[in-house]
């Protein structure tokens, strides 16, 4: 039995929970990386809980912190251009490939663009993925100007009239303003040819409270429209994503939960929330 249901069981039939139980719930929320601020908010709303409907109410409290925005990829008239961004090592290249695979298996035609020209062998990594899932990859040389690669890819995607173009980008720490400016340039250059329909920020589920700073600054730089939460197959519960949704109203759109190309799925709020609390 998860901590959540234990807590609820203790709560049943009582008018108020004793302080010890609140402590346990607090520990659980903090351990899931929700952060002290969101945890305090949730605890505050939860203090009013009583009786048999506690489980429903708690779920509602958590739900109320989710974004109300759509979690589907937005429709584009022509080619849906998806820019994949994030800090180093969160799984951008893998996520770009998995997303391509997911769209392809739903019957869409997809192209990938190897916009990470900085990390050693990142282009090769995406090409290997492309070959594996049967999606063509537009690439330049290592060290090429990422905006130029993205531009070429946008032109190619427009000509081929494919449904989606997914652009991988180099990992960059959000506090490096020159690298963030480079991302803005990629965006502007692509938009000379095709409008960008989605900017997906990849957040590693093991990330702590720094994830909020990441989301905030990436959103300022490139107008992030959704999150991909990766590595949810590990022991980390990815609570910082809920903290991001709550603080910045950016919806989680996809989750990554393994190394295979099919270990990727549209976000399911119910599953995620119960994963947060039922360790």
């Amino acid at each position: 039995m998860g901590i959540f249901s234990k807590f609820v069981a203790k709560l049943k039939g009582q008018s108020t929970a004793d302080p010890l139980d609140w402590k346990v719930l607090e520990e659980e929320l903090l351990a899931a990386d929700l952060g002290p601020k969101l945890t305090a908010e949730i605890l505050k709303s939860a203090q009013g809980l009583k009786g048999d409907d506690a489980l429903t109410s708690l779920t509602q409290i958590l739900n109320s912190h989710l974004s109300g925005k759509s979690r589907a990829l937005s429709d584009a008239n022509t080619v849906g251009v998806v820019l994949v961004v994030g800090v180093n090592g969160t799984g951008k290249t893998t996520s770009a490939a998995k997303l391509a695979n997911l769209l392809k298996s739903s019957g869409f035609s997809v192209m990938l663009a190897a916009g990470d020209t900085f990390r050693a062998a990142a282009v090769d990594q995406l090409q290997t993925w492309g070959a594996r899932i049967g999606v063509s990859v537009i690439s330049g040389k290592n060290g090429a100007e990422p905006a130029a690669v993205a531009f070429d890819a946008a032109v190619a995607a427009k000509e081929s009239k494919c449904n989606f173009l997914i652009i991988d980008t180099a990992g960059r720490l959000h506090n490096k303003s020159d690298l963030m400016a480079e991302l803005g340039k990629v965006r502007r250059v692509v938009e000379k040819t095709l409008p960008i329909s989605e900017v997906l920020l990849v957040i590693d589920a093991t990330t702590g409270q720094n994830g909020i700073a990441q989301a905030k600054i990436f959103a300022e730089a490139v107008d992030v429209t959704g999150l991909i939460v990766t590595k949810l197959d590990g022991s980390a519960r990815g609570g910082v994503a809920l903290a991001i949704e709550s603080a910045l109203d950016i919806p989680i759109k996809f989750i990554g939960n393994g190394e295979g190309e099919r270990d990727f799925a549209p976000f399911e709020p119910g599953q995620y929330l119960s994963g947060l609390i039922n360790d």
Binding site: L30, V87, D204, T206, G211, S235, A236
Partner: peptide, 28 residues
């Protein structure tokens, strides 16, 4: 990764009990 959250504990313990380690390197 220096950005890791509360999971650092579980992960470090899993590695310590699994392969074991002698020292730590902080990245990023």
């Amino acid at each position: 990764d220096a950005m890791i959250g509360q999971d650092s504990v579980r992960t470090a313990q899993a590695f310590q009990e699994g392969v074991g380690f002698d020292g730590v390197v902080l990245t990023k």
